[in-house]
Each structure stands twice: as structure tokens, then as C-alpha cells.
Design a protein around this nucleic acid. Structure first.
Length: 433
RNA sequence: GGCCCUAUAGUCUAGUCUGGUCUAGGACACCACGCUUUCAAUGUGGGAACACGGGUUCGAAUCCCGUUGGGGCCA
């Protein structure tokens, strides 16, 4: 690899926000370039005016930046080089390799022989040329088609490796013939397997919910999305599952990319996400929430308070967006369900007694000593008087949260502090007849 | 319909090139049990796959042929 200067490109059309499949293609191009000391280039293929979407290019660039997939050159916009494609089309007409047809320019596809090329992922591929037809390279409006434009640009930009989706394999005879007509050598090709939805169909923008930004908004960390997407179609020989971008640059092997399409499995993404959530400090999560998303709502409270809450819920989160719902009892008084307050077969009287015991204990503790450790010690000691700890601790925890599930009562009371803890226990007592 | 790509559990995959070490490994998900006041985390265990049929071979997930399934492109 030493004397080949590797250059890859990511060449999306600005027809929509960058989606998850595009992110993976960009990532693989980036990884391959970087691990070989080469360049990664962004090209915007904006020659299809009908499908152009306002804001798409900005979104693509911003998303790449968010994920740290910095491009070394570009964005190169095809719409800014329309003359070039016209000249190339003209060149082919001169060479009698193309001809005019109703205002468009059509390439004369040779029908004899077989196109064979080597794909880094698929190996040798052969396609008979008689399956092809003459095809348009320049439309009557003067805009080039993908067939012409991408290939002229790849040549002019000295792209050495074309890493793109599988769907272009069947058009390879066209590209090979075009290269041949220009007298150019073929670059290296690596055709990636498609990303599929649950129904095994190509993941498409039309299904929604697949724009990369949607995932960030839904509470997925960018590290998790990148990690997950890297694993759709590639895996190292080891059992490692969690990878930083740096890890990926080291470990990724283009030739090890899978040949068959991969289904996007949200459950695994959730797991990867929870791994990354647990790796972060509460402060980092708070900063992230304030920066990227707003799932926590307006951080009106002191950030120190929020950090404590985050620390509690953090190990339980699959997505950051779950936080407000899960921690709502810190921001509003719980409503009690008398049935929920009951532990196993306790009678109303026993529940009431249990809660009153808790209340008495709390009243005797100095507000300054409301630490998780101290509370735990005192309560567990007192719980010895009950048949099982649950008789004391379950009603207490429900009184504090109003919830069937939550973190433990001691860490919650540490955050709630004395006054609020006692008032909640009292409120729960009042509910019981 | 034509052409092309593809095929290990529900999902992502290791193993396939260089056949034996594979009674097929890991992860997610799922189930059970342990810990535990609940949840989460964690520990232990479990169910679950080489698409099918022929060959080649002493021996095939691995090589060859065919079939079927899935996908893509074009029409």
C-alpha cells in the first residue's frame, strides 16, 4: 500500500437527510482511507434537480461532523461542473462511442463479450454485456446522469477505491465500458451489502425514522449509533463489541465485510447505547442533554441536583429520552395507589404501621445525615424487626416514588432530603384508610 | 420476466479461501435460577442455526453441481 495514495469518497445525493445506511457507507469509506493514510472526500451528487431537497446538504455535512467523519476535501458539488460533463459527453460523441438521441446523449453500449471485474468484498464478478442497453449519459436538460457524472468525477478526483452500495453491481458493465471508451483504468470496487428493514427490504428513506438525526433526538448517543452501524455488515475476528472510532480505524477490514444484507435490529442498538450511557459520568450526560437533545426538559433546577438524579437513573437507561419519564417523581408529588403500597400479603394496618415506623425514623435523623449510607444502615437495622425487609422498605420506596419500579429508597431520600422524604411518607399514610 | 448478488439461531456475526482442533464460538433478544424491598446491573444455567438435495472425500458448515428462499437492478 505504500506507493498507492488511497482516496475514497462519500457521494450522497442531497435528496434527504443523511440516513443510517449512508452513515455506514461514509464510515467505511472514512475508515478505509484513514487506516491507509489516505484521503476521504465528500462529493455532493446534486444533478437530479427534481429530487433535490433544501437543507439536505447541510444536514449531511453536519452529521458527518457530529460523528467525527471529517472529510479532507470537499464538498465538491457536481452542479458546479456541468460544463465538464458536457465536454466528456461530447468527447464520447467524437469518438463515436455515444450519439445524440432526442436532445439527450446516449452511450453506445458494446453488446459482445463479458465484463469481469474484481470486487474487494465479492471477489470475481462476471456479467454478460448483452444484458445491457444503450443508456443516457447526458439528459436533454444538459444535466449528466449518475452513470456519467460519478465516474468522470471519480476519475478527475483520483479516487482509488469506490466503496458504495450493492445496488450498483448490475450496472458495472456500463461503468467498465465507459472507462474503456475514455481510455481510463477502473478503480478498485467494494460493493457493500444493503441495510434491510424488518421485512428484509432495502431500508429506504420513505419509511422514516431512519435519518441519523432522528436517532440522536430519540436519545441515542452518537458513539453508540456509530458503533452499532459499524457492526452492520462487519465484525472483527475477536469477541469485541464496543468500538471507538479509533478502534475501528485500527480493526476494520474492508475485505471482511459481509456479502449478505444486514437487518437493522433496534434491540441491539439499545444495548450498545446503554453500554455507552453507563460509561459516561453524570456530568457528561447532562452536558450532552443540554447540547444535543432536550429530553430532560428545561434544566431549571440546579445542575448539581440534576446530576444526582442522572446518576441514579443512568445505569437503568437504554435511551436518554427515557429520563424525564423515569425520574418524574423528583419533579412532582407522586400519586398513590393503595394497592401498590402493599408488600406481599400485608394488611392495611401493617402498611400503615410500616410507614409510620419509617416516618419516625426519618424524623429522628438529622437533616445533615441524610446520606445514602447512613439511611441504609439505620433502616436495615430497623428492618430486622419485620418478617422481611420488604415490609419496611417496599411501602417506603413506593411512598417516595409512587412507582412500581425505581432505584432504591436510600439513594432517593438522599436527593429528596429530609423534609420532602417525610412529607411523602405522610402523604402515603393519609391514603390508607 | 431477464440479469446480478446472496444464504450459520429471531437479529448481528466467528468459522468457509488453507476440509478433520466445530458434539459450530461470541453478542443482542428471550427463558429460568441466584443476589435483592422493586427495577437496573451482575452471576449461573437454558432453549435456539450450518436452507434443501445430490456429489467429491476416510472425513464437508467448509470444495463442486442443482434446487429453493431472500435481496437488488432493469423491464
Amino acid at each position: 500500500m505504500s506507493n498507492i495514495h488511497i482516496r475514497t469518497r462519500f457521494a450522497p445525493s442531497p435528496t434527504g437527510f443523511l440516513h443510517i445506511g449512508g452513515l455506514r457507507t461514509a464510515l467505511y469509506n472514512y475508515l478505509f482511507a484513514k487506516q491507509n493514510g489516505g484521503q476521504f472526500i465528500l462529493r455532493i451528487e446534486d444533478t437530479d434537480r427534481a429530487r433535490f431537497m433544501e437543507g439536505a446538504e447541510e444536514n449531511i455535512i453536519e452529521t458527518l461532523r457530529t460523528f467525527g467523519l471529517d472529510f479532507d476535501e470537499g464538498p465538491v458539488r457536481q452542479s458546479e461542473h456541468l460544463e465538464k460533463y458536457k465536454e466528456r459527453a461530447e468527447e464520447l460523441i467524437q469518438k463515436r462511442a455515444a450519439y445524440e438521441d432526442a436532445g439527450a446523449v446516449r452511450f453506445k453500449m458494446p453488446r459482445d463479450g463479458v465484463t469481469h471485474f474484481t470486487d474487494i468484498i465479492h471477489g470475481e464478478i462476471q456479467i454478460e454485456n448483452k444484458t445491457q442497453e444503450d443508456f443516457i449519459i447526458l439528459k436533454s436538460d444538459g444535466f449528466p446522469t449518475y452513470n456519467l457524472a460519478h465516474l468522470v468525477d471519480d476519475h478527475d478526483m483520483a479516487i482509488t477505491h469506490v466503496i458504495r452500495g450493492d445496488e450498483f453491481i448490475s450496472s458495472m458493465p456500463k461503468y467498465a465500458a465507459l472507462h474503456n471508451a475514455f481510455g481510463w483504468d477502473l478503480p478498485q470496487y467494494a460493493h457493500l451489502p444493503l441495510l434491510l428493514n424488518k421485512n428484509r427490504a432495502k431500508l429506504s428513506k420513505r419509511e422514516g425514522e431512519i435519518a441519523v438525526y432522528d436517532f440522536l433526538d430519540k436519545g441515542y448517543l452518537k458513539e453508540a449509533v456509530l458503533n452499532f452501524v459499524a457492526l452492520l455488515g462487519w465484525h472483527p475476528k475477536t469477541d469485541q463489541e464496543i468500538f471507538s472510532l479509533e478502534d475501528l480505524i485500527k480493526e476494520f477490514k474492508l475485505e471482511d465485510v459481509q456479502k449478505a444484507g444486514a437487518i437493522f435490529d433496534a434491540a441491539k442498538l439499545d444495548w450498545v447505547n446503554s453500554e455507552y450511557i453507563r460509561q459516561k459520568s453524570p456530568r457528561e450526560i447532562l452536558m450532552y442533554l443540554m447540547d444535543v437533545g432536550r429530553p430532560l426538559g428545561r434544566p431549571t433546577s440546579k445542575s448539581e441536583y440534576l446530576e444526582k438524579i442522572i446518576a441514579l437513573e443512568q445505569p437503568r437507561l437504554k435511551k436518554l429520552s427515557e429520563l424525564p419519564e423515569r425520574a418524574d417523581y423528583f419533579f412532582k408529588e407522586p400519586e398513590y395507589n393503595a394497592v401498590l403500597l402493599k408488600w406481599k400479603k400485608m394488611s392495611d394496618e401493617e402498611i400503615k404501621k410500616s410507614l409510620e415506623t419509617s416516618k419516625q425514623i426519618l424524623e429522628q435523623i438529622n437533616g445533615k445525615d441524610f446520606s445514602k449510607e447512613n439511611l441504609e444502615k439505620i433502616f436495615l437495622d430497623k428492618a430486622e424487626d419485620f418478617k422481611d425487609r420488604g415490609e419496611l422498605l417496599w411501602p417506603l420506596r413506593v411512598a417516595l416514588t409512587g412507582r412500581k419500579t425505581s432505584p432504591g429508597p436510600f439513594e432517593i431520600m438522599e436527593i429528596l432530603e429530609k423534609e420532602k422524604s417525610i412529607s411523602r411518607v405522610q402523604n402515603a399514610i393519609n391514603v390508607i384508610k
